[in-house]
């Protein structure tokens, strides 16, 4: 990779860095409890909770850091944080 002068960096290049490896707890979304309100997506600091075609939400585990904000904020308690690797 050659250096671009001016310390210019390409937009959205951080996508190369898969922060999913940081996670020790993993959010698991229970669609049965979900009201499709979208609050989880709104407050995910990584911006990686997406709406599925059926209206439910799922995170992109490649980037999810397992912070647990989604689970904490979900009004329906539809997200469970489970220990990674279980």
């Amino acid at each position: 990779m050659k250096l671009v002068i001016k310390t210019t960096a390409k937009p959205k290049g951080t996508r190369a860095n898969k922060t999913g490896t940081w996670r020790s707890f993993m959010p698991v979304f229970d669609h049965k409890l979900c009201s499709k309100c979208g609050i989880c997506a709104m407050y995910c600091p990584e911006g990686i909770i997406f709406k599925l075609e059926n209206g439910y939400f799922e995170p992109d585990y490649d980037y999810c850091k397992g912070c647990g904000i989604c689970a904490n904020e979900c009004p329906k308690k539809a997200i469970l944080m489970v220990l990674e690797g279980k």
Partner: peptide, 26 residues
């Protein structure tokens, strides 16, 4: 390169030891 919404580049990123030297060299 200029600051331009049509071609959104980032100016003034931080460089760690793996690239800083080359910026000075340039």
């Amino acid at each position: 390169f200029v600051l331009d919404p049509e071609n959104p580049m980032s100016f003034g990123a931080f460089a760690d030891p793996s690239t800083y030297t080359e910026f000075r060299y340039k």
